[in-house]
Design a protein around this nucleic acid. Structure first.
Length: 535
RNA sequence: GGCGGCGUAGCUCAGUUGGUUAGAGCAGCGGAAUCAUAAUCCGCGUGUCCGGGGUUCGAGUCCCUGCGCCGCUACCA
């Protein structure tokens, strides 16, 4: 047996000053599909998620609540994990940047960069708005160089001694990287943005702040804390043992892919590689920047950003409780292209759920199982001798599998799902209409032919098997139920996409093994009543 | 302002290197069927492929231009 290929992937770490919403969940689901797919294909996967806790906002929020930062972030981390678990996000580890392993790894890393001569001290000037009580960037200012929220008062110029990282010197090397590895940044549009940013010239970045009480000390100067990005990005290596467990680190680094939001592309594609070069570490293989989810207001038809002030935040747990995690996952993976932006509305959710999940998928499974039970008492005697090749005669299963694989690997999840629906599920439903098994099973009809009927059902079971395998990364619970519908040969866990064409040998005749209630299959996806599609 | 992207059926979107009557899903209309969660199947679109000009035997697909929308334009996550 060859050593299984390793696949280390990460998501962005989140700020724990508010609970995760559906936009945050979008990223995690997309990452989870990749992780589940890779595991299914035999990779050894390590899937890291986490929270970004060393920020001033955490301290402020904890103060508002009258608690210390650490218990606050620990409780938020618990809440985040709870949401991710309810969405069946199969993360292997969850790092909090307030953990010791992060502090130790972080300090060792920054020391290496310091020793390499890439960190120096100098004055940092910034514009401070007393109204907002925070620093403003040039790009945030009004034409009069005032704060947009407090245009009637001047900004204060604040100077502070900070440590700076020599990002500027890595510009040329970054451009070489983008040139040599065009797929380092995906999708391509994001890559172009980063290229033009770096072409425009990079400045050194400040990486420390004084007078912070929360965060990680600069190891050689405890008056300074490590500031934002230099701390946050390092979770990707401290989470797999950098500085604390070098054997583990050697096993997983470099990462196969970082999943991030499009807004933080430049930190991951310019700053992060430069940091790693400086410390003498390898670069991740790929950075994938996904789009954002917007809320479509059904009353006004407006497309809005998700925000607390607009009051349109949707709790993932609400949807999971009312429908299912698979329904939640399906909507976002099918309706929102991962590399681009997407929209959410309950009306659209209900339409997708009812059409694709309840009607096309759930009902296909239901009618298949139901006919097998009704016409054959659930046992397809002699099925071993029947090759299920009729239904997919018009479909090239090898090409279909290859195309779905390629789409998933490129994070074209919506395309992969569309292919599965059109080529597998639609084909299945059409096949039933064409063969009309209810006539074949009816002894009073001229079409009566029980052998032919059995053959049809063996083919339909095959559709269920193929669908189960293909859908597994997207809809883990549904896929498991589909596969458990019949006594297919071989445990589901061992069914890679290759087993779609190279079917495992049958040891016994097919029979229905789905759980029945009063002899019937309960609906997988009970319909959403249109009027219940709340606004 | 600069750089980049987008604008295709009522809605959401596909449309490789330019090549036959521009496609899918949903919605709508008509029909069939009844195994099934009234699900499914078949049929039905005179779409200015944003407008204008150009290259070409031929352009949704390339070039120029006008309009509209969006992204990026560094220390904010």
């Amino acid at each position: 047996m060859p050593e299984p290929r390793r696949f280390y992937q990460t998501t962005a770490i989140d700020y724990p000053n508010s609970r995760p919403h559906i936009g945050t969940a979008f990223e995690k689901i997309g990452a989870d599909v990749q992780a589940r797919y890779r595991r299914q294909q035999g990779y050894r996967v390590h899937f890291l998620m986490g929270n970004d806790e060393n920020t001033i906002k955490v301290v402020e929020r904890a103060q508002q609540l009258g608690v210390d930062p650490k218990p606050y972030v620990d409780d938020m981390a618990r809440q985040f994990r709870e949401v991710w678990q309810s969405l069946d996000i199969s993360f292997d580890d969850f790092i909090q940047t307030s953990e010791e392993r992060h502090r130790i790894g972080c300090q060792k890393f920054i020391q290496r960069v310091y020793d390499a001569g890439d960190i120096y001290k100098r004055n940092y000037q910034a514009l401070y708005c007393e109204g907002c009580e925070e620093f403003k960037t040039e790009s945030q200012l009004t034409p009069q160089r005032r704060c947009p929220n407090h245009a009637n008062r001047d900004l204060r110029l604040v100077e502070e001694e900070n440590y700076f990282f020599r990002l500027s010197k890595y510009g040329p090397r970054l451009l070489e990287l983008y040139e040599a590895r065009p797929d380092f940044i995906q999708p391509e549009g994001r890559r172009n943005e980063v290229v033009s940013l770096v072409r425009g010239g990079l400045e050194d970045v400040s990486i420390s702040r004084r007078n912070f009480t929360w965060g990680i000390d600069i190891p050689w100067d405890a008056e300074h804390k490590i500031y934002v990005w230099f701390d946050a990005l390092l979770n990707y290596i401290t989470g797999v043992g950098h500085g604390t467990d070098e054997a583990l680190f050697a096993q997983w680094w470099p990462a196969a892919v970082h999943f991030i939001g499009k807004d933080i592309t430049r930190f991951h594609c310019a700053l992060w590689p430069a940091m790693l070069w400086s410390a003498g570490l390898e670069l991740p293989q790929r950075v994938f920047a996904h789009g954002f989810v917007y809320i479509k207001n059904e009353a006004t038809d407006e497309v809005q950003k998700i925000s607390k002030s607009l009051g349109n935040v949707i709790e993932p747990l609400d949807i999971v409780r009312e429908f299912s995690s698979d329904a939640f996952r399906y909507y976002f993976m099918r309706e929102c292209p991962f590399g681009g932006d997407g929209e959410f509305s309950f009306a659209r959710f209900a339409a997708t759920y009812n059409g694709d999940l309840a009607n096309n998928l759930g009902n296909l499974f239901s009618r298949t199982v139901s006919m097998a039970v009704r016409y054959f008492d659930g046992v397809l005697t002699g099925s071993r001798a029947i090759a299920p090749t009729d239904m997919f005669a018009s479909v090239d299963l090898a090409a279909l599998t290859a195309s779905v694989s390629a789409d998933i690997e490129a994070c074209r999840y919506a395309t992969a799902l569309e292919t599965i629906w059109r080529q597998v599920l639609d084909t299945g439903n059409r096949y039933i209409e064409e063969t009309r098994p209810w006539l074949l099973a009816n002894s009073s009809k001229p079409e009566y032919d029980l052998e032919a009927c059995r053959r049809v059902l063996v083919n339909l079971a095959e559709a269920v098997r193929v669908a189960a395998i293909l859908l597994r990364p997207f809809l883990p619970r549904t896929a498991a139920k589909l596969y458990a519908g019949f006594n297919f040969p071989g445990p589901f866990a061992e069914q890679s996409l290759a087993t779609i064409v190279a079917r495992p040998a049958e040891h016994e005749d097919l029979r229905v093994t789905a759980e029945l209630v009063d002899g019937k299959l309960p609906p997988m996806f009970p319909k959403i009543e249109p009027q219940r599609a709340k606004a």
